[in-house]
Structures are given as C-alpha cells and as structure tokens.
Design a protein around this nucleic acid. Sequence first.
DNA 1: ATATTTAATTTTGAATTCATAATTACGTCA
DNA 2: TGACGTAATTATGAATTCAAAATTAAATAT
Lengths: 225, 225
Amino acid sequence: MNVETITRPSLHVELLDRLRSLIVEGELPPGTKIPERSLCERYGVSRTPMREALKVLAVDGLVYLEPNRGAWVSKVTVEELEQVFPVMGALEGLSGELACERITDEEIAEIRKIHEAMVKHYKGRDLVRYFETNQAIHEAILAAADNQELSTMYRSLAARVRRARYMANMTDERWEQAVREHEDILEALEARQGLKLAKILREHLKSKFKTVRDWLEVQEPDSLN
Amino acid sequence: MNVETITRPSLHVELLDRLRSLIVEGELPPGTKIPERSLCERYGVSRTPMREALKVLAVDGLVYLEPNRGAWVSKVTVEELEQVFPVMGALEGLSGELACERITDEEIAEIRKIHEAMVKHYKGRDLVRYFETNQAIHEAILAAADNQELSTMYRSLAARVRRARYMANMTDERWEQAVREHEDILEALEARQGLKLAKILREHLKSKFKTVRDWLEVQEPDSLN
DNA sequence: ATATTTAATTTTGAATTCATAATTACGTCA
DNA sequence: TGACGTAATTATGAATTCAAAATTAAATAT
C-alpha cells in the first residue's frame, strides 16, 4: 500500500502562484493589461490553465476581468483600501488574540529575535530588510494563532495592500512611530495580553493606512476603474 | 455613443452562481463526487467553463479538488468550523461596529420589522421562516456596514456554515437563547453602541457554533477528508 | 486634416480533441 | 473463493480548434 502518494500540482495552481508573485511583487503593475497569449508564451502553457488561474485571481481581487475584453491587473485605489484596512484590522486583531492564547515561550523568543533584527534595519535605514522583517513578525503571529482560515483571508488582503508601494513614502516620523508600535506589540505578546495586543494591532494598521493613503493620493491623482 | 452597454456574464460566472446554490442549499451534499461530464450535461455547457467554475469554488472552500482524481463537494468538519467561527465572529463584530457608525433611523426601523417577524416565526415554531428572517437581519446589518470587502468575506464563510443543517438540531432552550440574543442585538443597534454590538454578535456566534458542533458530532461520527 | 464607415486583424469565450492518469472489469492462478 | 496482475474503460488535464466579439487598420466622405 502506497502511503506517500506523489501529487504533482496541476498547471493552473503553478500558474496561480507565479502570477500572484508577479502582481504582488509589482512586476506587473496595477492597471497593466494582461494579454493571455503573451503570458502563455512566457510560461509555455496553453490558454486553458492560464485562464483558469486568471479566474481565480479575479475572485481574489488581484485581477480585473471584463467579459470579452480580457484581464487587467486590478488597480489599488484609496476607496478599496479604505474598505480593506478595517477588515484586515479585525483579522489581525483576532490573530493577536488567538496567538496570545496558544503561543509558546520559544515562539515568542523567536519573534523577539526578528523584532531586534527589524530594529537594527530601522536604525540602518535599510527599508527593504525592514519591510521583510516587519512582515515576518506579522506572519509569525499569524502562524502562532494557528488558524488556517484566518491565515488565508489575512494573506489575501495583505497581498492586495502590499501592492501599494507605500514604504517609499514613509517619513522618518512615521517610521519611528511604526517601530514604537512594534515595541508595544512585542510587549503585549510577551505578557500574553490578547485583547491589548488586538487593539494595538488594529491601531498599528490604522497608522499604516494613513501612510498608504498619502502615498496613493500622490500616485493616483484621479483615474477611474 | 452607447452608454447602456450590455455585458452578458460569461458562462463560468453563471455556473459559479448555480453551483454555489446547489452546494449551499444542500442539493449537492457534502462529500458528493462531482463528475464533470454529468454536471456539464445538466447545464448544457462544455467542460471548459465548468472546470473554471470548479477551480474558483475550490478556492472558496466549497469544493475539494484532487489532481487527476476530480472534484468533490467539500465536507463540513468540526475542525474546519472551529477555525471558521472565530473568523466569522471577528468579521461580524466589525460589521456591527461599522453599522452603528453609519446606519440611519430608517434602516434600524427596517431591521426592527424583520426582527419582529422573526420573533413571530419563533413563536409559531416555523423553523424555515425563522432561519430566513434571522439571516436577513445579519445581512441587513452587513449592508448597513457598507463595506464590500467585508461583505464578500463574511458571505463566503457564512455559506460554508450554512451547509451544516444544524437548525434541525436546535433545542427549545437554545432557540430561546438565540432569540434573546437577538433582542440584545437590536437594543445595541438602536442605541448605536458599536463595541457592545460587536461583542454580542461574537457571543451570538459562539453559541451558534455550539449548536452546529453538536449537530456535526451526531452526523459525522468520524470519517476522513 | 478630421470624422465616419467598412474591412482586416487580433483577442477572447467556449467546444472539441488528444494524451495521460485513474478506475473498473476481466482473467489467471494459488 | 480470493488475491494478484493485466486489459479495457472512463475521467481528467491541457492543447487545439472554431465562433464571436473587440480592436485596429484602411478607405471614404466631409
């Protein structure tokens, strides 16, 4: 009897991952037209699995489909993020609460380490590494919450937010504030104060939204769609 | 110039809606194998759009895909709902909070009406209509919250929960408690006490989960997948 | 030159086809 | 009878094909 069955993922799943990165990492910027044929050639697949992947990404909110007209990388608008951020706040708050209930001392120590690294990158003004470690902290809290449904939903929203390259817009003042908030996050986590952590995380997201909004209002003066 | 352009939705969207109903309404019960061919014949479409729809439903969590083996209506497990309910709680709590900020007196009056109807169905022990009006209240609060992202996510989870036909399992005691909780919901809403409403809604979901869990533990003694 | 039709081209939507994996049916042998 | 192996059948994954819609290019008129 075979226990260790090998299940090669189907093409559309593979494409899903790759397209998602392309979009989230900004290689395909918001508003870009996605012509099926050229993307298919790029990955050497036929249109069938490509179209399947695009349909999933459309439900995910990363792609915008117009019947008979094709697919675009969906834009990141202030109006959209105004709605996304409160939802993310609720989810990340829950993430903090659940994490405090379940997290082990070892996991906390691990997060503390990432936190210290993040502070180091802040002091060295290394924006890219700061962003990476920052994200790693939120991911670690999410992991500690140990809720797959929560993770999936949170990541889906986080991906959409990440496309706004707002980091470049962070003033020194806001950056400092973000780090301060992260100190509070660690503190609440180490004390396992779930409700407090939830509240801090929600507040943290609110100030993040301010940064993103300012950035978007510069980038996207008007424009429809 | 044509302003009123007609955009016929593509087949896969049409199928998406129909399949979703089939699954949520229980016509295709959890665990059912979904043979592509027969479903295609049922709707008179080819496999291409059907497969596109199935892939989307799989991301939604209503369908389970196994590579090279096909699609099944995903099962409703206690383990899954244990994760879904807290997330729903966070979302519905936010829904209550936002609703309290935005809701008009007229909208409140409308919800009060549905509430009265619900109480009437409770007294008449009309389970089906009770369930309908109950759901309508939560939908109305969600609508008042006026957040599309929130609505989408909430509905996706609610659909998965609805598939557990737990209502049949409601004891008189629990039913009474649910109605009592709904009285509190109305009260907090009319007083526009957002945080309180959020808390009540979360609690409300917790007791709902108890009912669902009891039902599932009878229905699904063990079983994998 | 600009606007407006009309034709050609391209792109998309969906059915069909083909290859491959999985399942079922059958036959053999202990 | 039942376990095992092999062939036949069926179902799925993905490429291809075909029809229809949209876009672009060309032609005509103003």
